[in-house]
C-alpha cells in the first residue's frame, strides 16, 4: 500500500479550493462520532464507580469527534496532501461482486454464485479480458467446489436450485 499523503502535492487548502485529505478525514471521524452519539443517546451513563452501558460509547465518540475537529483545524492551518479521486470502477465491481455472491449463494449455490461474483469483479480493472476471466472463473469455481465441499466438507450450497 502506498502512502498517498507523501506522494500528493503539498498545496495550501482554501486557495486552490480543493479539500485536503485531513479535512475530509476529520469530517469522516466527526460523522462517525455523531452517528454513535445519536444511537447511544438513550443509554444510561452511570457513574465512574458503576459505569453504565452508555459511558464508553459516549465518551469515546466525544474524544474521537474532538480529535477529528483538531485534525481539520491543523490541516486548515498548515495545508497538506490534497484528496485524490476515488477508484470508483474498482469499488463498484469488487463490492458488486461480493454482493452478487451474497445474493446468489443461498438460492442458486456456488455453481452460479462463484462465476457470477468472479466475472463481475474481473471488470474492476481496465486490463480485463472477458473470455479469459470467464474461463478462469469457471475453472476456479470447480476447484473451490472440490476443495471446500468435498476435501474440507464445509456445508456450502453447491447446486441449490435443483
Amino acid at each position: 500500500m502506498t502512502d498517498q499523503a507523501s506522494t500528493g502535492p503539498d498545496r495550501p487548502s482554501g486557495i486552490s479550493g480543493r479539500m485536503t485529505q485531513d479535512v475530509v478525514a476529520g469530517l469522516f471521524l466527526i460523522a462517525i462520532a455523531a452517528f454513535f452519539l445519536y444511537h447511544a443517546r438513550g443509554l444510561p451513563l452511570g457513574s465512574l464507580r458503576a459505569m453504565g452501558p452508555g459511558m464508553l460509547p459516549t465518551s469515546i465518540a466525544w474524544i474521537m469527534g474532538a480529535g477529528g475537529a483538531l485534525l481539520m483545524v491543523l490541516s486548515l492551518i498548515s495545508g497538506g496532501a490534497v484528496m485524490t479521486r476515488p477508484h470508483v470502477r474498482g469499488l463498484f465491481f469488487v463490492l458488486g461482486g461480493i454482493f452478487l455472491f451474497g445474493l446468489t449463494i443461498r438460492s442458486l449455490g456456488l455453481v452460479v454464485a462463484g462465476p457470477a461474483a468472479m466475472i463481475f469483479a474481473s471488470f474492476a480493472t481496465e486490463e480485463v479480458r472477458p473470455l479469459e476471466a470467464t474461463i478462469f472463473a469457471v475453472v476456479m469455481t470447480g476447484f473451490c467446489i472440490l476443495l471446500f465441499k468435498y476435501a474440507l466438507g464445509l456445508p456450502i450450497p453447491v447446486v441449490a436450485f435443483m
Binding site: 469488487v94 449463494i105 474492476a124 472463473a137 476456479m140
Partner: peptide, 16 residues
C-alpha cells in the same frame, strides 16, 4: 487481473 478474482472468491466462501 486473475489473482484478485481468485482471492475474492476464496474470501467470500470463507466468510460465508
Amino acid at each position: 487481473r486473475l489473482m484478485f478474482p481468485a482471492i475474492l472468491i476464496f474470501c467470500c466462501i470463507g466468510i460465508y
